[in-house]
Design a protein around this nucleic acid. Structure first.
Lengths: 338, 338
DNA sequence: GCCTGGCACTCTGCGAAGGGGAGTGCCAAA
DNA sequence: TTTGGCACTCCCCTTCGCAGAGTGCCAGGC
């Protein structure tokens, strides 16, 4: 359909526009890229590209800018992920390696990604549902008041207060704690319900209510806290959007504050491999002039969460994708080590 | 020094400028505020106010706008904190009351404050140093690997991994756990070091190394985690700064991302009562065209942390102060209940 | 059939020019 | 001390005109 040279022209347009942020004309194209043809020929190609919806003119007799469809083609067919340089890789490793706990890992990742891409970075905390249980702790705070602490293999800690129907002895509590842990430690969250549901039956009638309450709270924590958290950074980079951005930046800031929206956005991305959503491909309309590059990361083979960046559609896709992929890889390593 | 009417004129200028965001002239002043004098008289007063540095003209023969010094006088002498309406109070209570845990309380508070003031809200997590210990838990993860979990009365949980020099038996661990808790539960963080420092001596020589490691980690957690966290919201309100804000908004966004800066900012505020820092009174230069209204909040009589808002110097001070104070009060109540 | 050079046309962006408006400062009088 | 009057200043907005860049189309060449 599209000739080889036309694709080349589109690639050149995207690259130039990303660099200059100004509509690019036929003459400038032939000068900067050594296409072996004249401006007039390029004009013909541009007309065809515009006809097919890959580029557009902001105003008659101005240069062309890529459309969402044009960027899509560029990303799918014309762009290679640009690997980071060895020094950059080392810097990433050093910076992430200094993290002391999970919060710190996520915090550093966000700052790193924002810094590397000069865009807004979004990092999801490792998801509970895909994590496994490292430990469950039960503390007696008062005669009829317990605290349940759940520790995941990714270092996340969740706590819940439990009001017991009847007081429970320390001995029974220790027993419960031991049996609970022997059942669930190392198991994935999804599998926990089936493993603990018959636990109350094996206790004395007196304690059964309390044990049930504990089990119920545990399951509740697993479900409710699937509500996933995320961290955002680099919002100052939004000012790079352009001179027209007062109206552009506002809906983006609003969207970024709605973590639910962002989580959904990340969730929609394919599980493995990198996902690029361009402009109107994003469901949320506040993000219709932005692109989202996201990828899963995890401590093992499997992704436990996602991270990505949000930037203007006119972003440097190869560079951004390279940075996102590299950061995800190293975060995975760090998580695996801890 | 300043006559009564001149103060009245200053107040009128501030109020008008806050409302219109445009330099205010003598004629408009006499029309909107029923000052019983003519524009010419007001002009004389304005000249005097300008002489003293309370107001300034952006350009010759334009209206006047308040200076930082003018706002300062307004806040100190001319403005009353504007109480919220009963419906607003009820809404606050309902909204905050729905919180399920500490994260949720802080999150809701930030959103609420941003919504009420239409500005950027900053809420500090309850500080560890002023909190008391609710429980310390020790978990054996591996033969020579422990996890220390610290739970505060404000619901915060911190965890740390400990590598033991020598393995420790479950019995000894239980003993240590019990003695540790009996010493520190209910105590303020600041007092903990003195209470636990002689703990290692009372154990067998074999275990002393491990106990020392545990104590050291606990103390480290207390100190390091004095690093306080905070949450920010309402950054989309930055777009209200004005049409000239591309250059204004960027340093503010940058400052907001440096939590360390913000914590310092909040920390500088007086412990009790409300603090208003106007324009250049803020140490950080990115915030030199913003004002920060902050106040402490706490579960009891004493403040455990601070919250506040960051907005343009031309903000509605009475309304903002009223909202900040009210929110702080209700957050305190919520924390006291839980 | 595709590429190329030439040419007329369109539209934006920028700077100069001009008028309206708002506001000030000063002065003289009440 | 306040007030009305008046001349002056400066900003802002609109208009105008022009240069520049880019396009579309056409006719000719490979």
């Amino acid at each position: 359909m599209l000739g080889e040279r036309r694709l080349e022209v589109l690639r050149a347009i995207v690259q130039d526009y990303v660099g200059t942020h100004e509509p690019v004309g036929s003459k400038a194209l032939t000068e900067r890229h050594h296409l072996r043809v004249s401006p007039a020929t390029v004009r013909n190609d541009m007309a065809a590209l515009e006809e097919d919806g890959y580029i557009a003119q902001p105003h008659t007799s101005a240069g062309r800018i890529p459309t969402d469809k044009g960027y899509r083609l560029f990303v799918d067919k014309l762009a290679d992920v640009k690997p980071l340089s060895p020094p950059e890789r080392r810097a990433i490793q050093n910076f992430l390696g200094g993290a002391v706990d999970l919060d710190d890992v996520v915090g550093r990742t966000v700052r790193l990604l924002a810094q590397l891409t000069q865009q807004v970075a979004v990092v999801q905390y490792p998801s509970l549902t895909r994590s496994t249980v490292r430990h469950v702790e039960l503390l007696s705070l008062a005669p009829a008041r317990l605290m349940l602490v759940l520790i995941t293999d990714t270092g996340r800690v969740e706590q819940r207060l439990i009001d017991c129907p009847t007081p429970i002895s320390e001995a029974t509590l220790a027993d419960l704690r031991a049996r609970l842990n022997s059942k669930v430690v190392g198991e994935r969250f999804n599998d926990v319900p089936g493993l603990v549901q018959d636990l109350p039956e094996s206790f004395d009638a007196d304690d059964r209510g309390t044990v049930s309450a504990v089990v119920a709270t545990l399951l509740e924590t697993l479900v409710e806290e699937t509500e996933e958290r995320l961290m955002i950074g680099g919002t100052a980079n939004l000012t790079r959007f352009g001179p027209d951005f007062p109206l552009t930046i506002r809906p983006v800031l609003e969207a970024l504050e709605e973590h639910v929206v962002l989580l959904k956005l990340l969730g929609e991305a394919t599980d493995s491999g990198m996902t690029v959503r361009i402009g109107h491909e994003n469901a949320h309309e506040g993000l219709s002039s932005t692109s989202v590059v996201s990828v899963g990361y995890g401590s093992g083979d499997e992704a436990v969460a996602k991270l990505g960046v949000v930037g203007p559609t006119r972003m440097d896709y190869p560079g951004t994708m390279g940075a996102v992929r590299a950061v995800a890889r190293y975060v995975g390593q760090i998580l695996a080590e801890s």
